[in-house]
Write a protein that binds this DNA or RNA. Structure first.
Length: 360
DNA sequence: GAGCCGTGGCT
DNA sequence: TAGCCAAGGCT
C-alpha cells in the first residue's frame, strides 16, 4: 500500500526534523513512553487556532505557569483570564476556554474526554481541535485537517476544487493517508511538513519527503494549490474613542458586551464603528483630540479618532474605573492599547496634564 | 454556505 | 502599501 509507505516516510522525516515546541513531546520522548498532558495539548490547540506558533509561545508559557491544571484554570476569574489573553485575538476563544475548563471540572471530574466525539461536544472544540487532541494527546488514529493539511493534500492530489468547498474532499483524502501506527506523531508531522516544507508561497519541494508521491510536484505547478474562492474586499469604518482619567487618577474604561467584536474585553468608551463618524463624548470632560489609530480587523479597516481628557469627574458609576495599580495596558485588546498609547503620550507631554500631575 | 471574529509577520 | 496567511469555531 502506498499510504503505508507515505506514512512511514513522513514519520522518518519527523523523527529527524520535528520542531521543538513548548507543548510538544518529541518523537524520541514519546517512544520512551512519555505522553503529552491533554490539558497542555488542548490549551495549545485553542491558542493555535488561526494564530501563528510564534505568537502563541509566550502566551502558552504564561497560561500554563499561571494555571497548571484544567481545574486551576476553571477556578480562575474571568477577568483575569481575558486580561491574560489580551493581544492574542479572537476573544471568543478565551471565553470558550473558560467555559470548557468548567465543563471538564463540573461534568467530567477534571479529566478530558478520550474520544473524538466526547471532545467535539466541548465549547470551542470543533472538528479540527477534537481530532488534534484525540490524536496528539491520546494517540488515536483521528485525522487532523487544518490549513496545513489542506495545502499538503490539495497538492498531493492536484485537487482542482477551490476552498472552502473542497474541505469534505480533502478530509476524505487525508483520512486515507492517516496510519494506525503513531497517529499522534503523524498528525504533528503532516502539520510540520505544511509549516516548514510545503509552505504557501514557495514550497521546498526539493527536500520534501513526499516529493515522489506528489502530483503537483510532478507537474511543477504546486504553487497553484490549494485553489481558493476570491475574498470580499474589506470596508473602512470610522469611530471615536475617549480616554479619560478622573480627578482621583482612575482610568475610565468599560467592559464590552459578551457577544460581538472584542466581546467581554475592556475598552475605552466611544461611538459605534460605522461609515459615518459623528463625535459623541460619552460624558463631560475637557476633551482634546489627540490623533488617529488605524487598525485592521478580520472583515473591516478601522480609523479611530482618539480623544482624551484629564481630571474628569461626575457620575461615572456605569464605567469600570481603574486606579493606576489596577490597570495594565496589556489587559486591553490591541486596538484599545493603541488608543491608550496615543492618548497616554499626550498626558505626559501636554503642559496642562503635567500641571495636573504635579498637583496630584 | 456564508458572515463574523484579531493580530502580527511576511511579501 | 496592501494583501495574504496562520494548528478554526460558532451562528
Amino acid at each position: 500500500m502506498k499510504q503505508l509507505e507515505m506514512a512511514d516516510t513522513l514519520l522518518d522525516w519527523y523523527d529527524r526534523h520535528a520542531r521543538d515546541l513548548p507543548w510538544r513531546v518529541s518523537p524520541q520522548d514519546r517512544k520512551a513512553g512519555i505522553s503529552p498532558d491533554p490539558y497542555q495539548i488542548w490549551m495549545s490547540e485553542i491558542m493555535l487556532q488561526q494564530t501563528t506558533v510564534a505568537a502563541v509561545k509566550s502566551y502558552f508559557e504564561r497560561f500554563t505557569a499561571l494555571w497548571p491544571t484544567v481545574t486551576a484554570l476553571a477556578n480562575a476569574e474571568d477577568e483575569r483570564v481575558l486580561g491574560e489573553w489580551a493581544g492574542l485575538g479572537y476573544y471568543a476563544r478565551a471565553r470558550n476556554l473558560l467555559k470548557c475548563a468548567r465543563v471538564i471540572r463540573d461534568e467530567h471530574g477534571g479529566v478530558f474526554p478520550k474520544t473524538r466525539e466526547g471532545l467535539l461536544s466541548l465549547p470551542g472544540v470543533g472538528p479540527y481541535t477534537a481530532a488534534a487532541i484525540a490524536s496528539i494527546a491520546f494517540d488515536l488514529p483521528e485525522t487532523v485537517v487544518d490549513g496545513n493539511v489542506e495545502r499538503v493534500t490539495s497538492r498531493l492530489f492536484r485537487l482542482e476544487t477551490p476552498l472552502p468547498a473542497a474541505k469534505p474532499e480533502l478530509t476524505a483524502l487525508a483520512q486515507t493517508l492517516t496510519p494506525n501506527e503513531r497517529p499522534g506523531d503523524y498528525a504533528q508531522a503532516i502539520m510540520d511538513l505544511g509549516a516548514t516544507i510545503c509552505s504557501p508561497k514557495s514550497p521546498a519541494c526539493g527536500i520534501c519527503p513526499w516529493m515522489a508521491f506528489c502530483a503537483a510536484c510532478k507537474v511543477g505547478d504546486q504553487a497553484r494549490f490549494p485553489l481558493k474562492t476570491p475574498k470580499k474586499p474589506k470596508p473602512t469604518r470610522h469611530g471615536h474613542a475617549y480616554v479619560a482619567r478622573t480627578t482621583r487618577g482612575e482610568w475610565v474604561l468599560e467592559t464590552r458586551p459578551e457577544k460581538g467584536l472584542l466581546g467581554g474585553m475592556l475598552g475605552w468608551p466611544g461611538t459605534d464603528w460605522r461609515e459615518a463618524h459623528p463625535k459623541a463624548a460619552p460624558f463631560e470632560g475637557a476633551w482634546i483630540e489627540v490623533g488617529e489609530v488605524r487598525h485592521t480587523f478580520t472583515h473591516f479597516h478601522l480609523i479611530l479618532t482618539v480623544h482624551r481628557a484629564d481630571q474628569v469627574e461626575g457620575a461615572l458609576e456605569v464605567y469600570a474605573l481603574r486606579g493606576q495599580n489596577a490597570f495594565r495596558a496589556s489587559d486591553l485588546p490591541t486596538v484599545m492599547r493603541k488608543a491608550f498609547d496615543l492618548a497616554h503620550s499626550t498626558f505626559t507631554t501636554d503642559p496642562v496634564a503635567s500641571d495636573a500631575n504635579q498637583e496630584a
